[in-house]
Amino acid sequence: MTSVDAARPAALSWRIPVLGIGLAALLLCVVLSLALGARSVPVPAVVEALLGQGQGRDAMVVTGMRWPRTVVGLVVGAVLGLAGAVVQGVTRNPLAAPTTLGINAGAGFAVVIAIFTLGLTQPVQYLGFAFAGAAAAAAFALALGRRSGDLDPVRLVLGGTVLQLVLISWTSSILLFSERTLDEARFWLAGSISERGFDILVPMLPTIVVGTLLALMLAPALNALALGDEAATALGLPVARIRFVGMVAVVLLAGSAVAVAGPIFFIGLAAPHLVRLVLGGDHRLLLPGVLIAGPLLLLGADILGRLIAPPSEVEVGIITSFLGAPLLVILARRRATR
């Protein structure tokens, strides 16, 4: 056994308990999500409601309103965190996120167009339009990012950023033109898991499952890409194909998340960085780690949004944007000083 092989179990020996601590923190966050809000529910009553033994209004609040909302938060947070880790690995850009591919802006533009032209009024009606808009925007960003038949990470990020700005301006123009569309779309555009239930989540599960499997299978390849394209090619890896599959996974994951909850920013950027600080850059640990960190961040922001202005709520997308902006500045400054 070589010294490297011997070092791997030692390195994993402390990282696995860290994942366990993360799971415990996520479980606590789930309990708080079920218990806290405009109407606080004691933890014993939460447990009774989940076991089917509770009765009365507390049980109805837990099982009928907060449990679906919490499950949606878990799935959307995990999906956004995973999409962020993959897009950062594929582009080798620590500031990349699903938003840099225009996914959020594409989904928002498609939903606003659908509301404006078809008069849609329910979030469940937005699903197909949101996912299609996200996929179309990402496909266009990928086309802009190709050079000589290969995917150029720098061109991809720049092209996606420009596309996002264009789509946001078009969306704003429509909202200024139509007050009815603004009234219908502004709640969805804020990004929220409030009033999101299984009727919205279940239709997107096939794309979420496929995207998750693709992302997790790419972990060893993403480690090789981190060494550079030449090193990955020398190892016999098809770099262009890996990037394409990674982008497909990102579109499936982020497009599904946006379709379910609307545009929620910074989870895909922050979760991978937080996990790297603790577990390092090995994608075999990073990708499982973001499946914990993503929902932990999202549910934490959702709980904060319920508590800061009772009995009203601040949408989770607003909270993540408010907290994520300073993080983006810090990351950009750290990157610039290297």
Rank of each mutant, 00 (worst) to 15 (best):
Q53S: 13
Q53G: 10
Q53P: 00
Q53H: 13
G54I: 08
Q55D: 13
Q55E: 14
Q55A: 15
G56W: 10
G56D: 05
G56F: 11
R57E: 15
D58Q: 11
A59Q: 06
A59S: 14
A59V: 04
A59W: 04
M60C: 02
M60Y: 11
V61I: 15
V61D: 00
V61Y: 00
V61G: 02
V62C: 04
G64W: 08
G64N: 06
G64K: 07
G64P: 12
G64F: 08
M65C: 01
R66M: 09
R66S: 08
R66I: 07
W67A: 14
W67C: 05
R69K: 12
T70V: 12
T70K: 12
T70S: 12
T70C: 12
V71K: 11
V72I: 12
V72D: 00
V72F: 04
G73F: 11
L74I: 13
L74G: 08
V75R: 03
V75L: 05
V76N: 07
V76K: 09
V76H: 07
V76I: 14
G77N: 09
G77V: 10
A78R: 08
V79M: 10
V79K: 09
V79Q: 09
L80G: 07
L82W: 05
L82T: 03
A83Q: 03
A83H: 05
A83Y: 01
G84N: 03
G84D: 01
G84C: 01
G84L: 02
A85I: 04
A85D: 01
A85T: 04
A85E: 07
V86Y: 01
V86H: 06
V87W: 00
Q88W: 10
Q88T: 08
G89H: 07
G89T: 02
G89C: 06
V90S: 02
T91A: 09
R92W: 03
P94L: 07
P94F: 03
L95N: 04
A96S: 11
A96H: 13
A97S: 15
A97Y: 03
A97P: 05
P98W: 00
T99H: 13
T99K: 12
T99N: 15
T99M: 13
T100F: 12
G102N: 04
G102A: 07
G102Y: 00
G102Q: 03
G102I: 01
G102T: 04
I103Y: 00
I103C: 02
G106D: 03
A107C: 10
G108A: 12
G108P: 00
G108M: 05
G108V: 06
G108T: 05
F109L: 15
A110R: 11
A110S: 14
V111C: 09
V112Y: 05
V112A: 08
V112M: 08
V112F: 06
V112L: 09
V112K: 09
I113W: 11
A114N: 06
A114E: 00
T117I: 11
T117Y: 10
L118P: 07
G119N: 08
L120I: 03
T121N: 07
P123V: 13
P123T: 14
P123R: 12
V124C: 01
V124F: 13
V124A: 14
V124Q: 13
Q125E: 14
Y126W: 13
Y126F: 15
G128N: 06
G128A: 11
A130F: 05
A130P: 02
A132S: 14
G133Q: 04
A134D: 03
A134T: 05
